[in-house]
């Protein structure tokens, strides 16, 4: 079993320069952190979902549906316990009051986190790792670090496949490492981690050899097969994202889109 995040398609999002997409992801993070009213964070989530639909790569993020649903549910259950301020009491459990405002805040945080995860995934399902590496280098990240980070991204899908195979193998032996109490899970985690680690070590043992045989020198000036070039459409996306960022920050500073003005 092998997981690959990148979905090959000829969409407008795929054609964007990776630097533009990185900038857009950064903007989505800022937008999400700007508001804490659910209507506004839902709107940002809507923008992200629309972009994802436009990319025709939605099948690449299906694996995240259940974890994200759990994340939103946990937000709705737990955040009202931490932000307990407001005027309208919804529920009283002894000394514990759950406020309408804290519930709204919780929903907002759920949408916010989902938007941020999906924005990151949109970048990954529409960008080849090689393009991402080239973009990081163009953004002046030292080459060895850019190479290392891109290698991590390249390696994670393979490792996810290995992890699922190890879990299936352990289940076939009658041990389910993902079930049981917390202490049982911690003890059983070695059953997954040790084989994943050894497999990964075997897989990666050829990486240094491959790097050196291709003349890897960290400080050398390099040329790249992939030549990134910003097109007019990239500048339009960047301008649009910047304008939205400025507008959203202005709105926040004027008290729009907030449940709790003194919290992020």
């Amino acid at each position: 079993m092998k997981f690959v995040l990148y979905v090959d398609a000829n969409s407008p999002i795929h054609r964007l320069d990776p630097r533009t997409k990185l900038y857009w992801v950064l903007c989505v993070f800022i937008w999400s952190m700007t508001f804490n009213h659910p209507l506004y964070t839902a709107a940002i989530l809507g923008i992200v979902l629309a972009t994802l639909l436009m990319s025709r790569a939605i099948k690449g993020v299906k694996f995240a549906t259940i974890p994200l649903t759990i994340l939103i549910a946990m937000c709705i259950v737990l955040w009202p316990l931490f932000r307990r301020e407001g005027t309208t009491v919804l529920l009283s459990l002894g000394p514990l009051n759950i406020y309408y405002e804290s519930l709204l805040y919780a929903v907002a945080v759920g949408f916010r986190l989902t938007a941020m995860v999906l924005a990151g995934l949109t970048l990954l399902v529409t960008t080849r790792i090689e393009e991402l590496e080239a973009a990081l280098v163009k953004l002046k990240l030292p080459y060895p670090i850019a190479f290392g980070v891109s290698a991590v991204f390249r390696f994670i899908p393979t490792l996810m496949g290995d992890a699922h195979m190890v879990i299936a193998a352990q289940r076939a032996r009658g041990v389910d490492p993902l079930r049981g109490s917390l202490v049982t899970k911690i003890k059983n985690s070695a059953l997954i981690v040790a084989p994943i680690f050894m497999t990964s070590m075997r897989r990666l043992s050829t990486l240094p050899l491959a790097m050196e045989s291709r003349g890897y020198t960290p400080t050398a000036k390099r040329t790249y097969l992939i030549q990134l070039k910003m097109r007019p459409v990239d500048y339009i996306y960047i301008a649009l994202s910047t304008a939205l960022t400025a507008t959203f920050i202005y709105m926040r500073l004027n008290g729009i889109g907030v449940i709790y003005p003194h919290y992020i």
């Binding site: 994340l71 290392g148 994670i156 879990i167 985690s189 990666l204 990486l207």
Partner: peptide, 30 residues
């Protein structure tokens, strides 16, 4: 060192995957 970069990739990827496989039981979501 190319071997250290391989170790970095190994550590980062295994940690990321194990974090993902054993999805956190949220205490404060996010």
């Amino acid at each position: 060192y190319s071997r250290m970069i391989a170790s970095f990739v190994l550590a980062a990827a295994v940690y990321a995957v194990v974090l993902w496989v054993f999805a956190p039981l949220w205490i404060i979501p996010g």
